[in-house]
Write a protein that binds this DNA or RNA. Structure first.
Lengths: 140, 140
DNA sequence: TGCGTAATTGCAATATTGTTGCATCTATCT
DNA sequence: AGATAGATGCAACAATATTGCAATTACGCA
């Protein structure tokens, strides 16, 4: 919810400015990842203007507060839809419709850590991005 | 091995040109991911010159042939050190020394697929990048 | 070994993406 | 409403990435 995100901003001492609300609103209503310049274009098409520098800074902040995520495989940003630990970053990206589903699984995470440790590696953050077909596109 | 990579190029009908050998050689001897411009800088420091466009094209080709990988979390490229299926892309990145270890685990892969399917998602490619400390840095 | 040709590279120009410092503006508290 | 810390816009710039085309080169073959 937009309202929750705004509250989260304020709770940590950040101002609920118009630009921040605009960016949050766009992210809320969009399922697929958006790049900073895409966000700017969407706003422009609606007669709003934000400087790209502002958008970059807002996205940095949102990621820092775990209100948004950067999807590395495409470089875009999506809203954070889970309130799990910040250390894990997991998505399934549908190759057909581009939709993204965030997921979390404690068990999988532990198995990954265990596997890594068996190779002598002590992990802190796990990033996973799976691509394939979502249930809807798979049915088609 | 450099020789193997060159052979792989030729086996698929690509020429073993000087620029390609240079890039492969740099990737072979470097443990950490390198960006196109870093590769150019390393070569320049050795008195060699490659146009950045050439480097981009070579890296595209190497990734396409699964002789190199792009590490998404940093944007750099490393040599491919496993001859596993091209669909999986897994690294552990040491936060201290920057070294990268590629890994593969069929079992983990299957569990990931199963987990995704339980959410209605049919995966094709799995990307994982774990960050933490390698055994050497963990000991320090 | 030298030639012909298709593949590859270099170059120039341009597009896209990301960053910095500073002046101006605004959300929030009183 | 006014003060002020924090946020935004602007301008300039840096870094990264892409395209079309001319020049060069690796490789097969005579």
């Amino acid at each position: 919810m937009l309202r929750d995100s705004i509250r989260a901003l304020q709770a940590q001492g950040y101002k609920a400015t118009k630009p921040r609300k605009l960016v949050l609103h766009i992210l809320e209503e969009t399922e697929r990842p958006l790049s900073p310049y895409e966000i700017q274009a969407i706003l422009r098409a609606r007669g709003k203007y934000l400087n790209h520098v502002t958008i970059y800074r807002i996205l940095d902040l949102l990621c820092h507060l775990n209100l948004a995520h950067k999807v590395l495989s495409c470089g875009g940003f999506i809203k954070c839809s889970l309130d799990t630990a910040a250390g894990c970053h997991r998505f399934m990206v549908c190759q057909d419709c581009g939709a993204i589903q965030e997921f979390a699984d404690e068990e999988l995470c532990q198995e990954e850590s265990g596997f890594a440790r068996s190779l002598g590696f002590h992990t802190e953050h796990h990033l996973s991005e799976f691509s394939g077909l979502c249930s809807r596109c798979y049915m088609k």
